[in-house]
């Protein structure tokens, strides 16, 4: 493998005033040119981990590196020229024209004063086309649907001309077609233009079909990381998501089928008892996490 884009080495993070670590001793490597998925239940620490890797939070122990340097030591503008992030939620305070909203992606390059050059306008245009948002260019942002707004933000990220594209639950509001298009777009950028992609999502089945590496986070730990075929095992998935599942195979990629507790559990009475015990254990652990989840929600 080549250089590492992101690397967590024994990284821990504890929110101020919290009694337990939101992330504890996390190890994770995102190699250059890879497409990496990060999944896990609500409040497991995904967003906190991204905060460490993107330098908006400083680890309370261990190190988190972005492009070979401690992530929180980057000047934001320098990092923004190389890493683009489409975050979970974003409400613009004042309406903008879509083209203006996308052109904000050029700010890390032009800085505070330099006027837009021809190349900057071209980059905005190309990004709009790439994200299938060109027909929206003259609309006001407050008139867009959730899916359209998300594509505009993806266009803005592309206008940054980044080496690394991070999508933090960015497809949560998208319908099937636009979600698939987004994943295919990111995959295409990774495969054909050498970008590195990080996808944080709840849609485990979908992301498993695209990524090289899937990292599963639970209770502040990376409990498994590797090719989806190795990671999406029944025991791991049931433990992490605290729900009975079957794993099926779709063209060599494991897919999770969550079971209905009534009727689909035949022949699993034995296991179910075992699972129930595991679940109880899990719920105990989950209570410990609730405090962190609160603080994570707060920062939205």
């Amino acid at each position: 493998m080549g250089d590492l884009i992101f690397e967590a080495r024994g990284a821990s993070y504890r929110y101020p005033g919290a009694r337990v670590d939101a992330l504890a001793d996390v190890h994770l490597a995102v190699p250059a040119g890879a497409l990496v998925g990060i999944v896990g239940p609500n409040g497991c620490g995904k967003t906190t981990l991204l905060g460490l890797l993107l330098g908006t939070r400083r680890p309370t122990a261990g190190t988190a590196l972005a492009l070979g340097r401690p992530a929180s030591e980057w000047r934001r503008r320098d990092l923004a020229r190389r890493v683009a992030v489409v975050a979970q939620r974003e409400e613009p305070t004042f309406p903008l024209r879509v083209r203006d909203a996308v052109s904000l992606g050029r700010y890390p390059h032009v800085g505070p004063y330099r006027p837009f050059a021809e190349a900057d306008h071209a980059a905005v245009q190309a990004a709009l086309e790439r994200a299938d948002a060109l027909h929206l260019a003259d609309r006001w942002t407050q008139t867009l649907s959730g899916g359209e707004w998300q594509r505009v933000r993806i266009a803005r990220a592309l206008a940054q001309a980044p080496e690394v594209l991070v999508l933090d639950e960015a497809t949560a509001n998208l319908d099937l077609r636009h979600e698939m298009e987004t994943f295919e777009l990111v995959t295409d950028l990774v495969r054909s233009q050498g970008l590195t992609g990080v996808l944080v999502t709840h849609h485990v089945n979908l992301v498993a079909r695209f990524v090289d590496v899937l990292a599963v986070i639970d209770g502040g730990h990376v409990v498994a990381a590797g090719p989806p075929a190795e990671v999406l095992r029944r025991d791991i998935v049931e433990r992490v998501f605290a729900w009975p599942v079957e794993i099926t195979d779709w063209r060599g990629v494991p897919q999770i089928v969550p079971l209905m507790k009534r009727g689909e559990m035949a022949g699993r009475a034995e296991e179910q008892r075992g699972n129930a015990a595991a679940r109880q254990h899990e719920q105990g652990a989950q209570h410990g996490r609730d405090g962190q989840r609160g603080s994570e929600d707060q920062r939205g």
Binding site: L54, R77, A80, R81, E90, T93, Y107
Partner: peptide, 18 residues
């Protein structure tokens, strides 16, 4: 320009270089 970014929210502003 930094005000443009800040209007998006503090987190997006950081990721765009503010």
């Amino acid at each position: 320009r930094m005000l443009d970014l800040l209007s998006l929210g503090e987190e997006p502003a950081r990721f765009l270089g503010a």
